[in-house]
Structure formats: C-alpha cells, structure tokens
Amino acid sequence: CATGDVTIVSHGAVGALLLAHLRGVPITRALDQPGMGSVFRFDAPAWRATSGWRRVPAT
C-alpha cells in the first residue's frame, strides 16, 4: 500500500457532495465552496473530513 498525499481536482459541486458524505450529513448548498479555488482536507483511511473549505491564496 502506498502512502502519501493525494490531490483530487473537481468541480466545486462534486467537492460539496464529497464533503457532505464525509461528514455524514444531508446534501445542502451550505456545503458549496466559498469561491473558486477552494480546498478541504480529509483522512482517506478513516473516510472523514478533517477541515472545511478554505480559499487557496492568490499568488
């Protein structure tokens, strides 16, 4: 089994659906990303979210 970080890049709506699933909560627009270029972290082996959405800083 490989270890390390994995990045999933998707449309924000897909991220919101995944975030709802990881949190075990109903799908809601409240889980939409706050703006383009947002990320959240999750623990894949535990299959749970470890953060909410955060904006990626502009460079």
Rank of each mutant, 00 (worst) to 15 (best):
C1W: 02
C1N: 10
A2P: 15
A2Y: 00
T3P: 00
G4E: 06
G4F: 03
D5R: 12
D5P: 02
T7V: 15
I8V: 15
I8L: 15
S10E: 06
S10F: 01
H11N: 07
H11R: 05
G12V: 03
G12C: 06
A13G: 11
A13K: 11
V14K: 00
G15Q: 03
A16W: 00
A16H: 01
L17C: 02
L17V: 04
L17F: 06
L19H: 02
A20M: 01
H21G: 06
L22K: 03
G24M: 09
G24L: 10
V25C: 11
P26W: 13
I27Y: 08
T28I: 07
T28P: 01
R29C: 03
A30M: 06
A30F: 07
L31V: 03
D32Y: 05
D32S: 07
Q33S: 15
Q33H: 14
Q33W: 00
Q33C: 14
G35W: 03
G35N: 10
M36R: 13
G37I: 06
G37C: 08
G37A: 11
S38R: 04
V39W: 08
V39T: 14
F40E: 08
R41I: 02
D43V: 07
D43E: 12
A44C: 08
P45K: 05
A46V: 09
W47G: 00
W47H: 01
R48N: 09
R48H: 13
T50R: 08
T50P: 04
G52A: 12
W53G: 04
W53C: 05
R54P: 00
R55M: 12
V56Y: 01
A58Q: 13
A58F: 07
